[in-house]
Design a protein around this nucleic acid. Structure first.
Ligand code: MN
Ligand code: MN
Ligand code: MN
Ligand code: MN
Lengths: 221, 221
DNA sequence: ATAAATTTTTAGACAAGTCTAAAAATTTAT
DNA sequence: ATAAATTTTTAGACTTGTCTAAAAATTTAT
């Protein structure tokens, strides 16, 4: 079994591995966890001893198969709880993260499997992130950042990259929610801002926003 | 805020206070928590500093108003989660305790209040124990141990004293569940065993069982 | 009232997880 | 190739919560 702290380190390494095929550096982990590099060094030893990561000096860490499965299970729990909070307890998508951070560490396989069933085996969490299955596998969907779409292209809004409550509340205010169809009306050269059509509404959004919204390619006419 | 460990101490003191009007001794706490008296002494200092208990040397501890409210809130969470597990996730009443021990420490008032609403504001947990309200108050119901009923008296089975999974599974096997009507057919003098009618069925149960089952007085004809 | 038994506290140690400050190793720049 | 900058590790300390063993205080028995 793993401690809460070990689980958080594993989850962090898991998330960092998505963006790279390199080993994950001590500093990268420290930064993500808002802790000190010296603390990470200590934990790397513990996790190596437990065979969940492999560490090559100065080359960073990699999750072993066991480590990946363990981390994926924490992520699975996190995302299932987020679905529960939104679907059953009327939380909004910007309120769920902190509570899920706690709930993800509850240990009971019956609990999580029954919860999965109770929720109807959801495939994605409220932010559009995929939910790993019992074995830690997740089906990746073809998604693109809104910023990569060209003029007149359209697609369905399926996720966010940044899921901070500030960003999510901003999207709420603009009326941008998952499932909505977005069409690029205009791309401004000088600041890369976009003029888009979402539902019936025309909106102007900055490049920063466009780089945090995921779109499912959609053969729009 | 209180740590997980502090919450467990408070909850223990809360439960022990039900049975007595004396202060709760260091040893009593140690026994209930399966820890050592010296550890309890340390924690008593911390909890006193935090103004949740009052300690009179060699006279034991008492919860302050704040301590009582804090402890009751942990119990409230424990029991609401137990209801959730049984009602929504198909746990049986003997499987819920250990998971609830973990869930009771999740910190989010929105979570617990929404859960309460989602469950339809239940008043009792799956073992018949009352659920404290937001302010820590609970309505006590008039209940008696089955062992105290006389011949021909009857009542409704509303709770258990011992909620170990062994005892609960035993009750399941005998077909004794909360809400059922029980009538005393016979009381044996020599071993205090009972012959009872539960539903349509006649059963013989030992005094030990009768001392762990709560009955709601019922003006049986 | 004194002795015996019990309860509680103290003293010192340990494990987990974290921190700061300094040293060592590695990588990058000149 | 050497120096500079960066990354990582070590050393030592601290906190929380726990433990054992011994000392001290209190209660109970004679
Ligand atoms: Mn976490
Ligand atoms: Mn999420
Ligand atoms: Mn607990
Ligand atoms: Mn219960």
């Amino acid at each position: 079994m793993f401690t809460l702290s070990e689980e958080n380190y594993l989850k962090t390494i898991y998330h960092l591995e998505v963006d790279t095929d390199q080993g994950i550096s001590t500093n990268a982990i420290a930064k993500k966890l808002a802790t000190k590099a010296s603390s990470v060094t200590d934990m790397i030893k513990k996790l190596s001893d437990k065979k969940v990561i492999v560490y090559k000096k100065y080359k960073g860490v990699t999750l072993t198969e066991l480590g990946n499965k363990t981390a994926a299970n924490v992520v699975r729990k996190h995302r299932l709880w987020e679905v529960f909070l939104v679907e059953k307890l009327n939380f909004s998508w910007d309120e769920v993260h902190d509570v899920a951070e706690q709930l993800e560490h509850i240990k009971s396989s019956k609990l999580i499997n029954q919860l999965d069933a109770f929720l109807g085996f959801p495939t994605h969490d409220p932010h559009g992130d995929p939910i790993p299955d019992k074995d830690g596998n997740l089906k990746t969907i073809e998604k693109r950042l809104l910023a990569t779409l060209s003029k007149n292209e359209s697609g369905i809004c399926i996720g966010v990259d940044d899921s901070s409550s500030e960003f999510l509340q901003f999207l709420d205010k603009k009326g941008i929610t998952l499932g909505k169809k977005i069409t690029i009306l205009e791309k401004e050269e000088f600041d890369n801002s976009l003029s888009i059509l979402i539902g019936e509404k025309k909106l102007s959004i900055s490049n920063k926003i466009a780089n945090n919204l995921y779109i499912k390619a959609h053969n729009g006419h």
